[in-house]
Design a protein around this nucleic acid. Structure first.
Lengths: 337, 337
DNA sequence: CGATTTTGTCAAAACGATTTGACAATTCGT
DNA sequence: ACGAATTGTCAAATCGTTTTGACAAAATCG
């Protein structure tokens, strides 16, 4: 035996058991037409007793609503994505929707194809959380409109997008450094083409200037968003022998790589050097020297995206094109906490 | 504008454009009845041109097959689960199935309720990857059977389960220690009630005895599967005075916690002490001293579970009750690599 | 060459729900 | 107390497929 046995009871079963017509049962459920208190009670009891749930496929045929929200994840193994999914679920499950998941790896990282796979299922809306955006929206125009929300990266000015405020995040980091007594700060950013990294750095530098904190000449690096990227950049930074007592890294991988190199070189963190990362990765919390970092509003972005879709479906509420949520600082040992 | 516009073309549109009846179009697609080569070509062209995909809801009504596989994840943010999901997707997407995701947090961690939420969608099968199993299978018996597969933890002898071979994994770890010249080994296990931890330890000890490697009296600990658990256990272990040159930890969190304490106490890894973890967590790779660990066959378990479900649906192939896959050792710096 | 089988197509009947039109029975307004 | 509105219910149509029965035309067989 390998199965879970399920009886699928249908509306006619309920109707028969209650001695009414199927349409009456439907009306009881939808409240579309007035039903006598007595019949209503009888029908509801039988529904409960028999464990009846309307067949969503049949329902979808009439209403052309499936109650399914699609989720396209560039890389499902990325923790960011799963936090977002949790946020999405926290809204749609109570609202009775289901989540259909597709990840990029199955579609040669072609989000367009993946989206079409979701659409073939007649979803009611989709959330797209993908690194490099490449989806064309100007092809095909017809009688069915599908609401879409990008999370974490915008596509263009046509499709709504929810993302964290990286620019402001950079400012918060700079303020924290100033409070910790940092005088001169170095920066190791991510790849130069990555908007998120650029915004973080821009915010950091602007606030630094406002607060009179120096970012010395030649102390801004760009590297991969990885541990090894952080190691390499830090090595160069130390060779040049600049005098900086603060290091802002565009994410936690870089921060940990850089910290490892610094400590190998005999620097003490946070005494000789204060370090801040970004993203609040799991390992930042229990790294030998726990890393101060900026936590992203992942769950909230998921929640909000889902809310947008559900409200669009049920109340035809328009979705704002850009929503920016703020990140929050988590002080840890690497800046003296 | 916030929408992706989609035309949903139906079988009658295709039929009309091709000058045939809807049933002919259906037969072209299914190959159920012979169709002349000429008509077939014409219909297929029109299908392509119009971008027709059959409405899965309508299809499900006739066939009572939805082409949806449910996935119940205890905790979707757990990386293990997402690797498994990738494996599942790698099988079901090419087979034309979609993945419906539900995670435990939305259902007060009641898998039963979550499963029912999935079933209400009329899924064709489900994969359950959950920590503590609590699903009753003996309630309800009817005309629809739903194939189920547990991954990573068995429920009972009634529902098929796929899991890694923790016992053998423990043996592999012991062999590796012996090769590295470890003479006396300590063990920090997970909570004593956790079968996975018990199996790993049992395998380790058995193989140790076979190879003449000692596990001294009082050198087997149990703690939480966390970084702090590892720290605490290691502190006690060191206070008691060492006398062991190898440390086997039941997972990577414990290993990193223990290593941190050991290094703070002045021990050099791997020179004074060799450490092995379990699970190959992301951080084990770039921990300041990279951790030797056992990598779990997560992707493969997902693949296999999905394969079982698809084959059950399409070929009525029975699913074996227990499938055990082997883990593999990843040597790193913490054992001298 | 007549009988049977195969080929190619279509019309009609499901699948399980929701919605609409119809129609009694009641209640309401004046 | 009489027409109008409301209440309560049902039968029938519909959503977009797949499947089955029917039936001609062509191919095959003895």
């Amino acid at each position: 035996m390998c199965c879970y046995y399920v009886v699928m009871v249908k509306i006619t079963d309920v109707a028969e058991a209650a001695g009414v017509s199927p349409s009456t049962v439907s009306h009881v459920l939808s409240g579309n037409r007035p039903i006598s208190e007595e019949t209503k009670k009888r029908v509801l009891n039988i529904i409960k007793e028999l464990g009846y749930t309307p067949n969503p496929n049949a329902r979808a045929m009439k209403s052309s609503r499936t109650g399914i929200i699609g989720f396209f994840a560039g890389d499902i193994t990325e923790v960011f994505v799963t936090e977002i999914i949790r946020g999405v679920e926290s809204v749609i499950v109570p609202a009775g929707y289901h989540l259909l998941l597709v990840s990029g790896s199955e579609f040669d990282d072609d989000p367009r194809q993946a989206l079409e796979f979701l659409i073939s299922r007649r979803i009611d809306g989709a959330i797209i959380s993908y690194g490099t955006s490449d989806i064309k929206t100007d092809s095909g125009f017809g009688n069915m409109s599908l609401p879409l929300v990008f999370i974490n990266r915008s596509y263009n000015d046509v499709i709504p997008c929810i993302r964290p405020d990286n620019y402001m995040g950079g400012k918060v980091v700079a303020s924290h450094f100033a409070e910790c007594g940092v005088k001169k700060a170095a920066i190791i950013g991510g790849p130069e083409k990555r908007q998120a990294s650029r915004d973080r750095i821009r915010g950091f530098i602007e606030r630094s200037e406002e607060l009179g904190m120096e970012v010395p000449e030649g102390c801004v690096f760009h590297t991969e968003f990885t541990f090894d990227g952080g190691r390499k950049a830090m090595k160069v930074l130390l060779e040049r022998g600049k005098g900086f007592d603060g290091l802002f890294c565009a994410n936690d991988y870089i921060a940990c790589g850089a910290m490892t190199v610094a400590q190998e070189a005999g620097l003490s963190i946070p005494d000789d050097l204060k370090v801040i990362g970004f993203d609040d990765r799991e390992f930042a919390r229990f790294w030998p020297t726990p890393v101060t970092t900026m936590s992203q509003p992942l769950f909230q972005m998921g929640r909000l995206g889902a809310r947008y879709l559900v409200d669009f479906n049920e109340k035809e509420k328009e979705i704002p094109l850009l929503t920016v949520l703020s990140s929050s600082l988590i002080p840890r040992r690497s800046t003296g906490f």
